[in-house]
Amino acid sequence: MARFLPRTIRNMLVCASAIGALLTQVPAQAADVSLWKDIQKAGVLRCGAAVAAPYVMRDARSGEYSGYFVDLCRDFGERVLKVKVEFVDTNWDNLVAGLQGGKWDMAMALNQTPERALAVSFSVPATDYQVSLLINKDNPKLASAGNTIGDFDKPDVTFAVMSGTAQDKAISGVIKQGKIMRLPGMDEVRMAVMSKRADVLVDASDTNHLFAVANPGWTKEVLPKPALAKQGVAFGVRRDVSAADLQTLNIYLAQRRETGEIDALVDKASQLANADKTPQ
C-alpha cells in the first residue's frame, strides 16, 4: 500500500518513524544509575573488601581496615560524597558477584582485565600491577644493568620465581639466555636472592615493593621496559553506573595520582604491612 502514497506523505511517515525510534531510546538512556546521588541519600558508601596487602588489609583483632585502597575509598566517601564509609568483608571469589548483586557500591583493588570488563565498569587505575625484578644493588653481575630484560638476560644470571605463577609464565616467555630457578613458595624465592644463590627476584610489583621497603639496605626494584604483564588496578562499579558518576571518580583518582599522593599512600601501607600491624 505504501508504494501508492504521494512522496511527501511517505517522507512524513519515515520522519515520524525515526522520531518514534529516538523516543524509544530515551528510557534506556535515563536508566543509567545515579550512584553517587543514591549513596548520598542513603548516607553511606559501602566498599567491598577482599584482603591483599598492601591494597586492603584487616586487623584480625580489631577488625579495622587499612591499605591504600581503603584510604582512597574512605577519603572519596568522606571528602567528596560527604557520607559515612563502611567496609564489607568478602573474598576475591565473591568480590565481583557481590558488586553485581548490590551488596556493596564499589569493589576495591580490581585488576583490569577484559573478562572482568564484561561484568563491571572500571575506574581509571589508581596504580599499575606488573611483574617486576628485584636485585641486590651490589651484585657485580648487574652493575651496568638498566631496565630492559636484555640487560639481565645473560648466561651467568639466575632468575628466581615461584613455580606455576603468572610471574613464572611472564618471565619464561622473555628469558632466552639466563637460568630460571623455579621454587615452590615465595619465602624460598626471596631466600634464594638473599643468600645470593639467585641474582634476580621475579614477582608482582606490589609485593616486590613490600619486600624492598622491608630491606632498603641492599634491594633495588626494576620495572622492566617494555612492561611485563602490566594491568591497571582500579575500583570496580556496576555496569549501569552513569558516565557522569564514573567521571567524578576518575577525576578524583587522576588528581591524587598526578600529585604523588597515591604513591605516598602505597609506601605508608607497605610499611604498615611489614610492621605486621595488620595480620593477614
Results as ranks from 00 to 15, higher is better:
Val96Asn: 10
Phe4Thr: 04
Asn111Thr: 13
Tyr252Gly: 10
Arg7Val: 12
Thr158Met: 09
Pro155Ile: 02
Asp245His: 04
Gln280Asp: 14
Phe69Leu: 05
Phe76Tyr: 10
Gln100Arg: 10
Ala227Gln: 13
Lys268Gly: 03
Gln255Val: 09
Arg182Asn: 12
Asn111Glu: 11
Asn139Pro: 05
Gln271Glu: 08
Ala18Lys: 00
Ala49Glu: 10
Leu134Lys: 10
Phe87Asn: 08
Met191Ala: 15
Asp71Phe: 01
Tyr68Asp: 00
Val80Thr: 12
Gly178Met: 09
Ala53Phe: 13
Ala28Asp: 11
Asp240Arg: 07
Lys154Gln: 13
Arg257Thr: 15
Asp105Ser: 10
Gln100Glu: 15
Thr248Cys: 08
Gly98Met: 02
Ile180Ser: 07
Pro279Glu: 06
Trp218Pro: 15
Val83Gln: 01
Thr278Met: 15
Pro216Tyr: 03
Gly98Lys: 02
Asp59Ala: 02
Ala192Ser: 13
Leu210Ser: 04
Thr207Val: 11
Ser205Thr: 10
Ile180Ala: 11
Phe69Thr: 02
Ser144Met: 15
Arg10Ile: 01
Asp151Lys: 00
Glu64Thr: 03
Ala49Leu: 08
Arg46Asp: 11
Ala227Asp: 09
Val51Gln: 14
Leu45Gln: 05
Lys196Val: 07
Gln25Asp: 13
Phe152Val: 02
Thr278Tyr: 14
Ala30Asp: 12
Asp156Ala: 12
Asn147Asp: 14
Val120Pro: 03
Gly146His: 01
Leu72Val: 01
Lys225Leu: 06
Gly260Thr: 02
Gly178Cys: 11
Val80Glu: 13
Arg239Val: 14
Val266Asn: 04
Asp89Glu: 13
Val51Pro: 06
Glu221Gly: 03
Ala160Val: 09
Val202His: 12
Gly102Cys: 05
Lys196Tyr: 04
Asp199Tyr: 10
Cys15Ala: 13
Lys179Glu: 09
Thr278Lys: 07
Met194Val: 09
Ala227Phe: 14
Arg182Met: 12
Leu13Lys: 01
